[in-house]
Design a protein around this nucleic acid. Sequence first.
DNA 1: TGTACATCAGTGAACGCGCGTTCACTGATGTAC
DNA 2: TGTACATCAGTGAACGCGCGTTCACTGATGTAC
Lengths: 210, 210
Amino acid sequence: MPSSPASEPRARNARGQGELLREQLLDAAQELVDEQGGVAQLSIRAVTKRAGVSPMALYLHFADRGALVYALVARGFSEFRAAVLASRDAADGPRARIEAMGSAYLAFAREQPALYSVIFGPLNPGGDRKEAGDKPLTGEPIGRESFEDLVEAVVACQAAGQARAGDAHDLAIGMWAALHGYATLRYARSGVGWPEEEAYARAVAAAWLG
Amino acid sequence: MPSSPASEPRARNARGQGELLREQLLDAAQELVDEQGGVAQLSIRAVTKRAGVSPMALYLHFADRGALVYALVARGFSEFRAAVLASRDAADGPRARIEAMGSAYLAFAREQPALYSVIFGPLNPGGDRKEAGDKPLTGEPIGRESFEDLVEAVVACQAAGQARAGDAHDLAIGMWAALHGYATLRYARSGVGWPEEEAYARAVAAAWLG
DNA sequence: TGTACATCAGTGAACGCGCGTTCACTGATGTAC
DNA sequence: TGTACATCAGTGAACGCGCGTTCACTGATGTAC
């Protein structure tokens, strides 16, 4: 008989493969975040139960709940940034690149709304629950590098004469806020008649870059 | 000796004044939401403790935790809408009215960030914690009426020749997303150099209305 | 004017639950000699 | 080749906590007669 489904007890990892559990815990945590729409209700016990492991096993890989949340958000942001940059690099010409970044941004927010809202939501996401031992997100706030990517793309666009003059930073801010607003409002208030992602991304570029 | 500070036991309301506690509970809940940055961690026990009352007293006014959260959000939205409309009515001319609405929108989000994020965040805010008995936000999603106010202001602006032609609904969507993006991103990612509220509100109007 | 009674604005103890985290333990597997 | 031992990947029970909600009660105050 083949191995039965998830309900059977999980086999422990082979010697030297202990690190595998770390990724499995992050996967389980991400599933729960998707289901719950946020990180506030995420619990060690729920994560370890989903991974088929005792609560204590989590402490082999994370110092506490805050460290788990931080790792989850950091991993999510890496995926986000990679997706946006890949989309940019597949497009032709500075203006098309910017619009591709906007589309990819909105697509990620649609596909992973809970993760998106944690990445670009209030800082210190673990602290929502209890401060005890939670690692604050100090230094570079998550999301900053992607903003810099956008500024760079705006500069390239201006250099090619495909965007109005003006402070690239200010234009990038306007575009970022417009994208973020759509990303967080569209599915929370869907009854209002939203444009498609690509059309909106082009409209945002037109509004801020001319 | 005058009445001592909050630590002394609360006197119960006089006969016929039982409804006063309802507002006091909502006030306490709002304080906690401000402190915690959201509604997810709001507990009956914390609210009643702050109001100086036993947990059971809350059930005299609210069916359960979800009903409390719903009442809090509904009251907050009324305040929000009233503030935006008051600002609109104090301005001169259709274009200035729209810009005043935008400024008031951003000012409310700055002054009451937690309340703002609950009003315009994911629906069914009480459901974050546990579904048991929570009243879902059915029918008109909160925030809808303010969006209609904005559409109306755009129409007035077009009628006065102070906005480009086009579907007023689509223009209002663009402005709303831009305002919401600023409102939720500015204080969460403050290190990036944001414009002032009034300047941003004008820029948004310029971007979408021409 | 006196008193029984209904009403009102709450209180108090207890329930079962899930939580993060602690301390101590287990049992398979590889390695040194 | 055999065996003692260290290491690794976990487990199990228990702690004290805050939670929503239940059931039953209290004591002051107004009202009917």
